[in-house]
């Protein structure tokens, strides 16, 4: 298999690896603060997740330029579409891992991630509600990614923006889940 066809088939869900590594980094950083038992281990994992994100972003950027039809197909697929939010959730998670390490970078990551994630959540909601070819069998736990990602925005958000914004984002997330899913089931 050639490098071109591999790039063509690079799934957007690969960004979930950054989510996993960032989550581990946050837990290790917290444990380090409490016990001083894993000195710098959390920061090492945080830097590793940042590196993985940059590499994946470059690869996916090339895919966007070279194979835009593949990307459009992926982001409009009923099941794969939810994984598009793994990019923006990764940005928000990375802003949490770099909160102490590099505050300026963390703020830039948070602002970019929070805005893009809001846009993607609205896109996902709009697609779920208005697209007619979605069926009940397309529902999967992955559908929670765009919605629940909003719960992560306030973690660094209380440092960089007013608490009211964080509160509203959390409330929006909590209200989308039951409301959106009920509406979707009713329309089918």
């Amino acid at each position: 298999m050639t490098m071109h066809s591999r790039l063509q088939n690079l799934p957007v869900s690969f960004f979930s690896t950054v989510m996993g590594l960032s989550g581990l980094a946050i837990a290790l950083q917290r444990a380090d603060e409490l016990w001083a038992s894993s000195p710098a281990l959390g920061n090492v994992v945080a830097l590793l997740s940042l590196l993985v994100f940059v590499v994946l972003l470059l690869c996916y950027g090339v895919k966007v330029v070279r194979y835009p039809e593949q990307v459009i197909g992926e982001l409009s697929d009923p099941v794969k579409m939810s994984f598009g939010a793994t990019i923006t959730v990764s940005l928000v998670l990375l802003s949490i891992t770099t909160l102490q390490l590099a505050p300026a970078l963390s703020k830039a990551l948070w602002m970019t991630g929070a805005v893009l994630h809001l846009v993607y959540t609205l896109y996902a909601l709009n697609t779920w509600i208005h697209k007619t070819d979605f069926e009940i069998r397309h529902m999967s736990p992955a559908w929670f990614i765009p919605v629940v990602g909003n719960m992560l925005v306030p973690v660094a958000g209380v440092t960089y923006a007013s608490p009211e914004i964080s509160c509203r984002v959390s409330c929006a997330c909590l209200s989308i889940c039951p409301g959106g899913l009920t509406l979707f089931r009713w329309r089918r």
Partner: peptide, 8 residues
């Protein structure tokens, strides 16, 4: 070579 293949 099981990653980035068609159909995934």
């Amino acid at each position: 070579h099981q990653i980035c293949v068609a159909g995934h």
